[in-house]
């Protein structure tokens, strides 16, 4: 499935009227000098947009996010080709510290909260790169508590002992404390009850609308991601195989077939989908 949805490829920007804040141009990522993980991925996220990055396990979603936030280097990964730009500036050689200062921050998969710090201390570490004084930081802390009232109740609890949902909120809240322009949110729905997933995504939406934070969502939960994103890219084996407006993607037969488990003949079970997918790949 290498065709792109017709209209999208030609238009330069996703929102058409807004310039892309993040522009990834044909990057290749190699781990440990030998393992080729991304084989030319291009995508863009407009200012204040929500974009979904979809795909199965091992498709390269997390690697793409880490290439942007440059956490890759700490795992012996390297962007060997292509370029990454944020707000018109090349960022592919910058340290995560520089990137956070410029407003790009990643919320890692698996939450990664600081277990032995309290919830509030966790949030405060997010403000590390800021130099605008306690009053401003306190203001943002209140704002985070406003978005996640549950965190306020648990502010003095050791973060390692909070629930999975609270940890996910904590790690998003922590990113918010850096006053980001763009959050790279990796598998926010992983291991959470459906209702909590809904809550998290509703908050993402609110943050996007009220604070103007752009989101790049790496998700396996395709349904949920396409519901909240405006645009989506589908990765397979380190390549973008399909992209388009979220609505168009969720109507696309292939996407329905492969990622949503639906087809024109109604819901299919997993085995049939798998079979169909394999056949389709051979034909492609």
């Amino acid at each position: 499935m290498n065709e792109s949805l017709a209209s999208s490829q030609q238009q330069p920007a996703v929102g058409a009227n807004r310039p892309p804040a993040l522009l990834i141009n044909n990057i290749e990522v190699i781990y440990d000098h030998v393992i080729l993980v991304l084989k030319g991925v291009s995508l863009e996220v407009p200012e204040g947009g929500i974009v979904a990055l979809l795909g199965a396990n091992g498709a390269g979603k997390t690697t793409t996010l880490k290439a942007i936030s440059n956490l890759l280097r700490a795992e012996r990964g390297d962007v060997t080709k292509g370029s990454i730009e944020f707000a018109g500036e090349r960022i592919d050689r910058m340290t995560p510290n520089d990137l956070v200062k410029r407003g790009v921050i990643q919320v890692m998969e698996g939450r990664h909260i600081f277990e032995h710090l309290t919830v509030e201390e966790n949030l405060l570490t997010g403000a590390y790169t800021r130099g605008d004084g306690r009053a401003e930081i306190q203001k943002d802390l209140d704002k985070v508590y406003d978005y996640f009232p549950q965190l306020k109740e648990r502010r003095n609890a050791q973060a390692g002992y909070t629930s999975g949902g609270e940890q996910q909120m904590c790690s998003i809240g922590r990113a918010l404390m850096s006053r980001p322009k763009m959050i790279l949110l990796d598998e926010a729905s992983m291991g959470l009850a459906p209702q909590l997933v809904e809550t998290i995504f509703e908050t993402v939406k609110r943050l996007n609308e009220e604070e103007g934070v752009a989101f790049l969502l790496a998700e396996q939960n395709t349904n949920m991601a396409l519901k909240y994103a405006k645009y989506g890219y589908i990765l397979e084996n380190g390549r973008v195989v399909l992209d388009g407006e979220a609505e168009a993607l969720s109507r696309n037969e292939d996407v329905k077939e492969f990622y949503l488990g639906l087809s024109s003949s109604g819901r299919r079970n997993y085995r049939e989908t798998k079979h169909y997918k394999r056949r389709k790949r051979w034909l492609a």
């Binding site: 700490a74 995560p96 919320v107 909260i113 277990e115 710090l117 570490t125 590390y128 790690s171």
Partner: peptide, 23 residues
């Protein structure tokens, strides 16, 4: 202190510390 907190954060999870911009 901010630094002290950052130190403890690094001790807990240095990847996450890197991700929030602690050098």
């Amino acid at each position: 202190t901010r630094m002290g907190r950052a130190l403890r954060a690094v001790a807990d999870d240095h990847q996450a510390a890197l991700a929030v911009g602690i050098p």
